[in-house]
C-alpha cells in the first residue's frame, strides 16, 4: 500500500472509530450487568443529535468557554495524526513528535479547564482542578514509558518507537515493556477519566472529574467535547495496542484489521475493568498514579542499570 492510501486509511479510521470504542465499552458493561445495553452505534447517534441541537450559553461565559470545546477537539484531532496505527509511519512524523503529542493534549486540557472556570460554577471548578491535578502525575508516567521506548528503539519518533521493530524488543526486554504497558494502561484510564479514577456513566454532578468539568456545555459544543474525549480514548488505546501488539504480518490488508481488533479488545478490557472495579476514593487516586509512575520508572531502571 502506498503512502497516500495508507494515510487516508489512517485518517478515516482515526476519525470514524473513536465513538465505537465508547459503544463497545458501554455494551461490555451492559453485558456484565445482565442488561441488553444501548446499541453499539449509540455514541454516533448521540453525536449526530448533539450537532443538530441548539445551545444554551451561560451569561457568565466569554469566548474562552467556546474555545475550550474547539481547542480540546482540534488538539486531540491533530494528536491522532501523530501516532502510528499499524506498522508504518503516522501521517505526520518527525523527530520529537512525541513531545508535541503530549503537549497537544496538554493544550486541550488547559482550554477545557479554563472553559470550566469560565462558567463560575463550583462543580466545574472542582472538576477542572482534579483534571489538571491528576494529569500532573499521569504525565511523568507517560514520559517515563517514552524513555523506555526511546532507549530500546533509539528513535525519537513515535512511528519509530512503536514501529514493528518493537516486536524484537519484547523478546529481550519483555519485563520493561510489560511494566510500561501496565503503566500506560493506568494512564489511559486516568487520562480518559474511566473507573477506577472516575465514573463516566453518572453523567451528572456525582461524576468527579471530566464529566463534571463539561457540565455547562450543550449542543454542538458539547458534541465537540464528547468527540474530542473519544478521540483521546482512541489515541491512548492505539498507543497501548501498538505497545502490546507491535508485530506486523507484512501485508497492510491484514495489519489494519489486527489493529482494529486490538483496539476493540482494549475497549472490552476497559469495560471489564469498569464492571469489576469500584471507583477509588478521591484521595487514593494519586497513589495509583504514583504507582504507574513507579512502574515505568522501574522499567527504565531495569534497562539502564
Amino acid at each position: 500500500m502506498n503512502t497516500i492510501i495508507h494515510d487516508s486509511v489512517h485518517v478515516v479510521l482515526a476519525f470514524s472509530l473513536p465513538p465505537l470504542l465508547l459503544g463497545v465499552i458501554a455494551k461490555t458493561k451492559a453485558l456484565f450487568a445482565g442488561r441488553v445495553g444501548p446499541p453499539l452505534l449509540q455514541p454516533y447517534y448521540d453525536l449526530f443529535k448533539l450537532f443538530q441541537k441548539g445551545s444554551v450559553y451561560s451569561t457568565t461565559t466569554t469566548w474562552v468557554f467556546r474555545a475550550g470545546a474547539v481547542v480540546g477537539f482540534v488538539s486531540a484531532g491533530i494528536a491522532v495524526l501523530l501516532i502510528p496505527l499499524s506498522g508504518s509511519a503516522a501521517p505526520i512524523s518527525f523527530t520529537g513528535d512525541l513531545i508535541l503529542f503530549a503537549y497537544l493534549l496538554g493544550l486541550g486540557r488547559f482550554f477545557t479547564a479554563s472553559a470550566a472556570l469560565d462558567t463560575g460554577s463550583a462543580f466545574e471548578g472542582m472538576g477542572a482542578a482534579r483534571e489538571v491535578t491528576f494529569a500532573c502525575l499521569a504525565e511523568p508516567a507517560f514520559f517515563l514509558g517514552l524513555l523506555v521506548l526511546a532507549k530500546l528503539s533509539g528513535s525519537l519518533q513515535l512511528s519509530g518507537m512503536l514501529g514493528s521493530s518493537l516486536a524484537t524488543h519484547w523478546a529481550n526486554a519483555g519485563d520493561s515493556l510489560a511494566l510500561v504497558l501496565l503503566s500506560w494502561f493506568i494512564v489511559l484510564l486516568a487520562e480518559n477519566s474511566r473507573i477506577p479514577f472516575d465514573d463516566p456513566n453518572t453523567h451528572l454532578e456525582l461524576t468527579m472529574i471530566h464529566e463534571v468539568m463539561v457540565l455547562d456545555h450543550g449542543g454542538p459544543a458539547f458534541g465537540m467535547i464528547l468527540y474530542g474525549a473519544a478521540l483521546k480514548l482512541f489515541v491512548f488505546g492505539a498507543l497501548v495496542v501498538r505497545l502490546a501488539v507491535p508485530m506486523t504480518v507484512g501485508s497492510a490488508w491484514l495489519d489494519w484489521p489486527i489493529f482494529v481488533a486490538g483496539l476493540l479488545v482494549v475497549a472490552v478490557v476497559i469495560g471489564v475493568v469498569e464492571s469489576t472495579m469500584a471507583r477509588l476514593r478521591l484521595t487514593r487516586v494519586p497513589v495509583l498514579l504514583v504507582a504507574a509512575c513507579l512502574l515505568s520508572a522501574f522499567a527504565i531502571i531495569l534497562l539502564v542499570r
Binding site: 510489560a178 487514593r284 531495569l302
Partner: peptide
C-alpha cells in the same frame, strides 16, 4: 526469574499502598 521478581517487587508496593 526476572519477571517473577518484578511481580514480587510490585507486590511490595501493593503491600505499602493498600489501605485494607
Amino acid at each position: 526469574l526476572d519477571p517473577l521478581l518484578i511481580v514480587a517487587l510490585a507486590l511490595n508496593f501493593v503491600a505499602l499502598g493498600v489501605s485494607r
